[in-house]
């Protein structure tokens, strides 16, 4: 499987012990998601990307993704779902993993974060596009959005505790976060263009 064939991968980063919260922490990067039944904390840093924290509070299963919709290159393509197809798949990767871990679809609830207007030199409001997508997707799928902190000029650091559903958000100063911006810009480059589709196999 090539890295561009499938847009979302299960969190690759190794876990570490977060001494502040006294539990295992999993940090996820753009294009990753992580779902768990354990009492852990999932951490990510968001610029214009969005992260959906989705959980089944009864089964105590939860997870987070971290993604950005691709920016359309030019207007010749009449494909109105160009960006949303990617976002819908990003959400489905997370939701399917939650279901595999014992969550029930009709009990899922979500919290959503990020989508800041932080990328310099982008002509369109990338963050705003991501925010609009997440709200529309959750509404279409009947997944209640319990809380959110999206938009505005700030990058954010998000801590999600899947067992309780609690989320801590730290709004960061944009001047100190070139790492976040550079990571997002390389993510945009990697996941834009015709290669952004899954593989096809016909059985003989």
């Amino acid at each position: 499987m090539s890295s561009t064939a499938v847009p979302m991968v299960h969190g690759r980063a190794s876990k570490y012990l977060d001494r502040s919260f006294n539990r295992q922490a999993m940090k996820i990067l753009p294009g990753e998601f992580y779902a768990t039944t354990e009492d852990e904390v999932i951490v990510t840093v968001l610029g214009s990307c969005v992260a959906a924290c989705v959980m089944d509070p009864i089964a105590m299963v939860g997870g987070m993704n971290h993604f950005m919709l691709p920016v359309k290159q030019g207007d010749r393509d009449p494909d109105v779902f160009f960006a949303a197809r990617y976002g819908a798949a990003a959400m489905e990767y997370l939701i399917n993993n939650l279901l595999h871990l014992g969550a029930q679809r009709d009990r899922l609830v979500a919290k959503a974060f990020g989508g800041g207007n932080v990328l310099p030199g982008m002509s369109s409001d990338v963050g705003g596009q991501n925010v609009a997508f997440v709200r529309t997707f959750l509404s279409n799928e009947g997944i209640p959005l319990w809380s959110e902190d999206m938009g505005g000029p700030h990058p954010r650091k998000v801590y999600f505790f899947p067992h309780t559903g609690q989320v801590l958000v730290k709004r960061m100063e944009r001047a100190h976060n070139n790492t976040v911006l550079n990571r997002e810009l390389s993510y945009i480059k990697e996941f834009t263009g015709p290669s952004m589709a899954g593989e096809v196999e016909l059985f003989s």
């Binding site: 499987m1 499938v6 819908a88 990767y93 899954g198 593989e199 196999e201």
Partner: peptide, 29 residues
Amino acid sequence: TTESDQSMKMRGKEAGATGWIVKPFSPEK
């Protein structure tokens, strides 16, 4: 589907599927 695991594809083939497409799909493909 979002599933791209080879064993899952084989289960699909054995069940009688004609082909397997991994999401996100492109309309052209």
